[in-house]
Design a protein around this nucleic acid. Structure first.
Lengths: 91, 91
DNA sequence: GGCGCGCCATACCGAGCCGGTATTGGACCG
DNA sequence: CGGTCCAATACCGGCTCGGTATGGCGCGCC
């Protein structure tokens, strides 16, 4: 599992549409499809149902969506905090 | 930045020693050195001081260590929770 | 003060992953 | 029943990641 995979997952969940999410992420649709499937493999459970109009979150996906957002936000905050600690006490 | 990089960073910080951390992670020392340097590049600040006996955490590194542990724990918890949600309500 | 040892850093190489294009298969809608 | 729109698959190229070999440097012991 990678951070990119988590970001991809969040985008797909928000768009409920793989192709639109791919456009938003500036990548093509097939690698995005693969990343999501590989994430489902790793979690060991499907995260979306596939429909003719796009995809829909399953319960496990909804849980993961919340947690993934928290993790990605925490990561950004962690980096910002570390940078701040480095510039605050330079000598 | 990758999750592997965060795990590597935590191991090096805990061991205060790149070579020992590499053994613990079951990878060789050079890739680990590179991963840490690349992490420092990305954060934009050095995280360790290099000494003749190993490495020592800088303030920015100490901050990041705490946050990295939280993030990695949160990730494990998130996956476990998603799995649970998938098996709990199967139909 | 020179010698040796242990550490991190660099050079180089091969394999596996990631993203891209092209295409298929299938469901809904007129 | 044909067109359209969606995700899924096939296949390929570049790049990243990990491995081996080696270098450079500082400390410690005579």
């Amino acid at each position: 599992m990678s951070l990119a995979q988590l970001r991809y997952f969040v985008a797909v969940a928000e768009e409920q549409h793989v192709t639109r999410a791919a456009r938003r992420l500036h990548i093509a649709q097939p690698p995005l499809t693969r990343a999501i499937r590989s994430l489902e493999d790793e979690v060991g459970a499907p995260l979306f149902t596939r429909t003719a109009r796009g995809v829909r979150l399953l319960p496990a996906g909804a849980i993961l969506l919340t947690r993934a957002r928290e993790i990605l936000d925490a990561l950004d905050a962690a980096v910002a905090e570390a940078r701040r600690a480095a510039t605050d006490a330079p000598h």
